[in-house]
Amino acid sequence: MLIKTLKNRLVCACLILIGLYAVVSVGGTIFFQYEPNTQDLLQANTGPGVAHWLGTDYLGRDLLARIVYGIRISLTIAFFATLINITVGFLVGSVSGLLGGIVDRLLVGVLDIFWCVPPFLIVVMLTVALEPGIKNIFIALGLVLWIPTARMIRGEVRVIRNSPFIKFARLNGAGSFKIMARHILPNCIPVLLTTAAFSIPDAIMAEAFLSIVGLGVQAPNASLGVLISDGLQSFRIYPWQWFFPVLTLTMLVLCFNILGDALHEAYSSKAKGLLEHD
């Protein structure tokens, strides 16, 4: 089913684009002659041209170099935030679903309390408390994003726990640990993958939002959010300073969303296939 998904042209294009973004942002300065933070005031606010492909900003920094650098920071934040998200979410969700009883009730209580507070409020509070900076942004994001993941994994574990194949495995003499490791948790991985694929664009958007309101990555570092926020100030006179970062962000988020959708579709149609078989 996964192979069939990969054969889909749109998904393929998204994967290639994401790969390209990743390679270019990691390679960064190898590909381009300009440093993202080098100022050249004589060249300030030049439009797209031969020397600066995408133009320069108000301090004469090359916009292309800054966007590439911004993608690197945005992707790093998204990656680590998602890593924290799925690790914590998976652990809490599976412990809660597997153990049940008082542990489950306690954890669900904590989840419900967090669920009631707007997530961005927590992120903003955390970034203020931890001081703005790359590391603290992904910590704050990771700590908020895991809540829906944990709920989803918990539900999945509870459904799987009561399914006939678990009963059959138990009746064939498998111990609790083996049942958990070999029968329950592997069946949660599709849900986890889909969640991760949707969590990356969420994290990118959240980082952009934080940077736009001034709580994100601090100058002179550039993330896509910082670039959009800078471009916004001279948006009417030098529209390219705003347009290119927004285009990049949109493409990136769109690619991850299409990928997440495709994964979701692949696994849900697999599940549907199983049901039809019954």
Binding site: S163, N172, H183, H277, D278
Partner: peptide, 29 residues
Amino acid sequence: RRQKIGYIPQNPQGSLTPTRKIKAQMQEV
């Protein structure tokens, strides 16, 4: 259950773990 009793379920397809190959499941049992 391990040594003396064999059990044959009602719903054979639902009783095998969907994400594991037959080999791994039989080996385990």
